[in-house]
C-alpha cells in the first residue's frame, strides 16, 4: 500500500504529453495494486495546468516558485529527494525525456533507489516492479528486475502508454513550501530556441513523404521531394538526414523533431528508431518501405513494403505521370 509518484513534465506553461501517458499507466497500476497516485508538480507561480492535473491523481503535491518555472536539475533533484525520503513511494515515474534523462539518474544516485530507464512497460511481480525495455535500438526486448529496495525509479519512454481516458481521482492539492536548505542552482536557464521553425510546417500536413538513412545519398533527396510534390504531400525526414545537413531541422519527425499527425505517413528507408516512431503516434495510416524486413518501422506501420525504396519510388512516379 504505497504511493506511485508521477513527476509532471511541462514546458512554457503547458503539460507535456508524457505526463498524461505516465498518469494513465500509473492509474492502471494503482487500481490493480491499490496504490495511491500522486502527481508531483514543480512549477512557476500561477502555472495554469494545476487544475488540469490534480483531478487525474489522488493528490497533487505542488511546489511553486519562479526558480522552478523551467526544469533545473539541481533544484528538482533536491526537492524530489526530500519528498521521496519523506513519503517513500513504491514507484516514482518520470519521462525518458531530456528532463528525465537528467533527473532520473541524479535521483537514483541521491536516494539510492534503483532506476530503470526508457521503459516501454511496467509490471509488478512479487511486490516488486519489473520493466520491459528495448535494447539494440529496438531489435530486442529485455525484462529487467530491480535489486530489493524501499522504492523504485522508472523512466518511461514517450509514446509507450497512449491514454484512452484517464479516470478521475480525488484531486487533493497540497502546496508545499520550498525546503529551506535548497542549494543555489549551478546550471541556469537562459532561453528556448525553436530549432524546428522553418518554411515548411510538417505538423500540419495531411500527407507526409518521409525519408531516412536508406536514401543513401544527398542527391536522391531532390527525387523524393519531387515525388512528394507530385503527390501533393510534404517532405519530412528522420534524424540522420538532419544530422548530415541534408535537410533543415524543420523537416525532422521524432522526439527531437516534431510530432506529426498526417492522415497518411509514407516512410521511405526509415528503420524506425523509437525516437522517430514517437513522433508519428498520432499519424493515421503508416506505410513503410524498407529493404530490411526486420526494420522496427514495420512493427508500427499499417502497411509494409519490403523492397529497395527506389524501385517503389520509380514505380510510383511512373504511375503518377501516366
Amino acid at each position: 500500500m504505497g504511493d506511485i509518484f508521477v513527476v509532471v513534465e511541462h514546458r512554457k506553461g503547458e503539460v507535456r504529453d508524457i505526463t498524461y501517458e505516465m498518469l494513465f499507466k500509473a492509474g492502471q497500476l494503482c487500481r490493480e495494486y491499490s496504490h495511491n497516485l500522486t502527481a508531483v508538480i514543480l512549477a512557476g507561480h500561477d502555472e495554469s495546468f494545476l487544475d488540469d492535473i490534480a483531478p487525474k491523481a489522488d493528490r497533487g503535491i505542488v511546489y511553486e516558485d519562479e526558480s522552478l518555472k523551467h526544469f533545473n536539475g539541481d533544484l528538482y533533484r533536491d526537492i524530489l529527494k526530500g519528498l521521496i525520503e519523506e513519503h517513500r513511494p513504491f514507484l516514482t515515474l518520470a519521462g525518458h525525456t531530456s528532463w528525465g534523462m537528467d533527473l532520473g539518474p541524479a535521483l537514483s544516485a541521491k536516494t539510492g533507489y534503483p532506476l530503470a530507464t526508457d521503459c516501454v512497460d511496467i509490471l509488478v511481480e512479487n511486490d516488486r516492479p519489473v520493466v520491459i525495455r528495448q535494447i539494440f535500438s529496438g531489435k530486442v526486448f529485455s525484462r529487467v528486475s530491480f535489486k530489493e529496495s524501499e522504492g523504485y525509479l522508472v523512466s518511461v519512454r514517450p509514446g509507450s502508454f497512449l491514454p484512452e481516458d484517464i479516470e478521475a481521482r480525488k484531486g487533493e492539492v497540497i502546496k508545499n513550501e520550498l525546503p529551506a536548505d535548497l542549494p543555489v542552482p549551478r546550471k541556469n536557464f537562459v532561453e528556448f530556441v525553436d530549432t524546428a521553425a522553418g518554411d515548411v510546417d510538417i505538423s500540419q500536413a495531411d500527407l507526409l513523404v518521409s525519408i531516412g538513412r536508406g536514401i543513401g545519398d544527398e542527391d536522391n533527396i531532390e527525387e523524393l521531394k519531387n515525388l512528394a510534390n507530385t503527390m501533393g504531400g510534404t517532405l519530412s525526414c528522420s534524424r540522420p538526414i538532419v544530422d548530415k545537413n541534408w535537410l533543415p531541422k524543420y523537416h525532422q519527425v521524432g522526439t527531437s523533431g516534431k510530432s506529426v499527425k498526417p492522415k497518411v505517413y509514407l516512410a521511405f528507408g526509415i528503420s524506425g528508431a523509437f525516437q522517430h516512431v514517437a513522433g508519428i503516434t498520432a499519424a493515421g495510416t503508416v506505410i513503410a518501405v524498407n529493404k530490411d524486413k526486420k526494420a522496427p518501422i514495420f512493427r508500427v506501420a499499417d502497411y509494409g513494403v519490403v523492397d529497395d525504396l527506389f524501385n517503389v519510388v520509380n514505380a510510383l512516379k511512373e504511375k503518377l505521370n501516366a
Partner: peptide
Amino acid sequence: PRTVVEEVFLPPETEGAEIIEGDASTVA
C-alpha cells in the same frame, strides 16, 4: 548492480504491418 536483466527476447514476429506483396508496379 541495482538492476538485473531477467531475460531478453525478440519482438513477436506477428505484430506489425500488413506486407504489400508483388513487384514494384503492383506495390505502387
